[in-house]
């Protein structure tokens, strides 16, 4: 069976975090990683409390966590329905371990084009 990773984000304006008063690089990294993993065919879902509150209600583990520790407990990471980490985003090596692949395989592919910054 394919491993399913679910990430329950705190209430965010946008998934990269650039809409806040300042940038949190951890958020940006997570946003990018999420897209990369999806592109490679892994099953990774991300829910933003501000936009999709339903999963936070439906998932008992996450709901209990929220009731016990409040929104500071977010982000929460579930792997195949099991709560693996909370309060922090997963690192690349953690993700690799959960997906049972070599870390290098998850590294982003080199950019195809030089980006135009502005």
């Amino acid at each position: 069976m394919k491993t399913h990773i679910e990430i329950f984000d705190p209430a965010l304006c946008c998934s990269t975090g650039v809409c806040g008063p300042d940038v949190d690089p951890a958020l940006t990294r997570m946003a990018k990683l999420h897209t990369d993993l999806q592109k490679q065919g892994y099953e990774v879902s991300r829910y933003n409390l501000a936009q999709e509150p339903q999963p936070f209600v439906e998932n008992k583990l996450v709901n209990d966590l929220l009731h016990a520790e409040g929104p500071e407990a977010l982000p929460a990471v579930l792997v195949d329905g099991e709560l693996k980490k909370h309060g922090e985003y997963p690192t690349l090596s953690e993700l690799a371990a959960w997906l049972n692949v070599a870390e290098e395989k998850l590294k982003p592919v080199q950019p195809k084009k030089q980006i135009n910054l502005l």
Binding site: C14, S15, T16, T35
Partner: peptide
């Protein structure tokens, strides 16, 4: 701390009306 493609990704959010 970010790679080029990650920057490109962030740029998209920066183009938002906020």
């Amino acid at each position: 701390s970010l790679e080029a493609e990650e920057l490109a990704f962030m740029e998209e959010d920066l183009d938002s009306p906020c």
